[in-house]
Write a protein that binds this DNA or RNA. Structure first.
Length: 554
RNA sequence: GCCUCCGUAGCUCAGGUGGAUAGAGCAACUGCCUUCUAAGCAGUGGGUCACAGGUUCGAGUCCUGUCGGGGGUACCA
């Protein structure tokens, strides 16, 4: 049982017995005090009741505490502090019992079944295959995959999906770029304009076309061959890149299929039927002003081509039709203006857009020392995600991208990532894990291990030991909260704290020989090894959620 | 103009539904390795939480405005 809910229940009853009437159970909120020395969990109900009852909050707190059970083995102390907080300190017995649960549940510790029998689709990256993934895509890839992993841990059935537009102008320009490069290789003068893709990879693909077809395509004026070739080659690269980060998509969904299956036409027809579209200036407009927007939006250009909105609406309709309980879209902040149109479209078609969660992440500013690096796929002066992984490795890459809140701008200093990667916090967390593995191994060499049942955990009494248990027991709540709020950056924050508390625990043995893990006292040694193992389990589970390896040696 | 994200230590950033003395890493400075990894631990210095009002027992957190920066505001995606 979770301590929070237990306390909430206890206090709620005491409040009623003391003659007060809380408006709702949520009014008794149990929180973790920031300050050490204020217990493990605190309740501020007396402060809330004070203004309503026009009484001294400390007196109210006293009245409530009087109604709490006089002896409860779960707590070692209950006290009134400050302006009227009631602070609960968990008993060592309660903590040790929690430790036993960690050892029992192993890799499953922290998992819940909140999402049992529920499906969720996470759409992310979704970059059109016009060039290698950039660092900006990298942030989105890691955010999306980590959110997917968190949701899996709390029981959801997750589908990772990648959507791409292969029907529009961008891809045509890509094909044209390859075609012109191909002609250049045949000695013709360049027809490439500023609007075309300039990257070296375009020439590589053109060279492939040359090797495959010779000069047979010299006078071809149809880009489709070049476009298809480029799409295939570039997509392979994209898949390889994300695979290096441990990311695998379940579904690649392409725009073209929406036309082939008639889903685009269906949307137009449905909107027409509801009289939410009209023709003007040769284009077809979606009456988004009916949904509180400033202007109506074009969905079919005068050229007959759709704008991105139309296939996006059709695609999201398809997602809902596929029956997902929850749909998560992850976009860069350059897309903030597009999703209201899509949600309006979904609503207009009679669907519940409430199950769609749109998460916007802010940009990555790439720094090379003190200089900003401008990034543009078209101009090809970017640092690719692949190059970044080459430089700092997959673990550091993932950690950098997930370490901060997604609505905060990310300053990614390449020089720092390269030269000072040893100082990176990811090594700090991994090192704690490696240290534990090492100590377990060392004990094993001396003939002490954890085989043969749970040790006598009551031998754990030192402050460093209890602090570590406290921290480890927070993991399920951290994971659940991070998953439900879609805030993956809370995981690394927690892991760094946990690593610190572990390092402090192990370091205590350096200062005081009696605090060493492996001593001549075999029972105590086994109890401490169990604690080490629990720390290993939690760190490993946490790193796993981040898609980062847990090395046993460094 | 309008929408949106951001502004917290020298730098990069955390700060669950408002709570008690605002934190971490890096950088600077000082200690700590004969035995379980010093990729570590302990400590010192460093702040008008951009600014001004407001809401209340209480605001870094909520509301309004101002300033500064990012992104958007297309018949590009």
């Amino acid at each position: 049982m979770k301590a929070e809910t237990y306390i909430q229940d206890l206090v709620l009853k005491a409040v009623t017995r003391a003659g007060f009437s809380p408006e709702h159970a949520g009014e008794v909120s149990v929180m973790e005090p920031k300050q050490k020395g204020h217990g493990d969990l605190a309740v501020n109900i007396a402060l809330i009741l004070a203004s309503r009852e026009k009484k001294n909050p400390r007196e109210i707190a006293a009245a409530i505490v009087k109604e709490l059970p006089s002896s409860d083995s779960c707590f070692s102390q209950i006290e009134i502090a400050g302006p009227g907080f009631i602070n609960f300190t968990l008993s060592d017995d309660w903590l040790r019992q929690g430790l036993a649960e960690i050892l029992e549940q192993q890799a499953a510790y922290g998992n819940t079944d909140i999402g049992r029998d529920k499906t969720v689709q996470v759409e992310f990256v979704s970059a059109n295959p016009t060039g290698p993934l950039t660092i900006g895509h990298g942030r989105q890839a890691v955010i999306g995959d980590t959110i997917a992993r968190m949701l899996e841990q709390i029981g959801y059935d997750v589908t990772r999906e990648y959507y791409f537009n292969n029907a529009g102008r961008q891809m045509r320009m890509l094909g044209e770029s390859v075609m012109y490069r191909y002609r250049e290789l045949l000695g013709e003068t360049s027809e490439l304009t500023e609007d075309h893709y300039q990257g070296e990879y375009i020439i590589d693909i053109a060279r492939e076309a040359l090797e495959e077809k010779g000069d047979a395509l010299r006078n071809l004026n149809d880009v489709s061959y070049f476009q298809a070739l480029a799409e295939e080659r570039i997509f392979n690269e994209i898949k390889n890149t994300v695979a290096r980060l441990g990311i695998r998509f379940d579904v690649f969904y392409n725009e073209t299929s929406l036309y082939e299956t008639g889903k685009i036409d269906d949307v137009i027809a449905a909107l027409k039927k509801k009289e939410l579209v009209y023709e003007a200036d040769g284009a077809l407009w979606f009456r988004t002003t009916a949904f509180g927007q400033e202007t109506d939006k074009v969905i079919l250009k005068s050229s007959g081509e759709p704008t991105y909105r139309l296939p996006d609406i059709a695609y999201h309709r398809d997602k809902i039709e596929r029956g997902f309980d929850m749909i998560i879209d992850i976009f860069g902040s350059d897309h903030v203006a597009t999703y209201p149109d899509v949600l309006a479209g979904i609503g207009a078609l009679g669907y519940d857009s409430g199950k769609i969660h749109v998460l916007i992440h802010q940009f990555v500013t790439l720094m090379e020392g003190n200089e900003k690096v401008k990034m543009s796929t078209r101009k090809a002066n970017f640092v690719t995600l692949d190059e970044l992984i080459d430089d700092v490795g997959a673990d550091v890459t993932r950690y950098f991208f997930i370490n901060r809140s997604m609505n905060s701008h990310l300053n990614f200093d390449l020089a720092l990532a390269r030269t000072e990667s040893d100082e990176n916090p990811v090594y700090y967390v991994q090192y704690a894990h490696a240290r534990i593995c090492s100590i377990l191994e060392h004990a094993g060499e001396r003939g002490v291990d954890l085989a043969g049942g749970t040790p006598d955990l009551s031998l754990l009494t030192a402050r460093e030991e209890m602090d570590l248990i406290r921290k480890l027991l927070n993991w399920p709540a951290v994971l659940q909260q991070a998953a439900e709020a879609f805030e993956p950056h809370k995981i690394p924050v927690y892991l760094e704290e946990t690593a610190t508390v572990y390092h402090r625990f192990q370091h205590a043995g350096k200062v005081d020989g009696a605090m060493r893990v492996v001593t001549d006292d075999e029972d105590l040694t086994r109890a401490r090894l169990a604690l080490c193992d629990a720390a290993r389990i939690v760190l490993s589970n946490g790193l796993d959620v981040l898609g980062i390896s847990s090395p046993s040696r460094m």
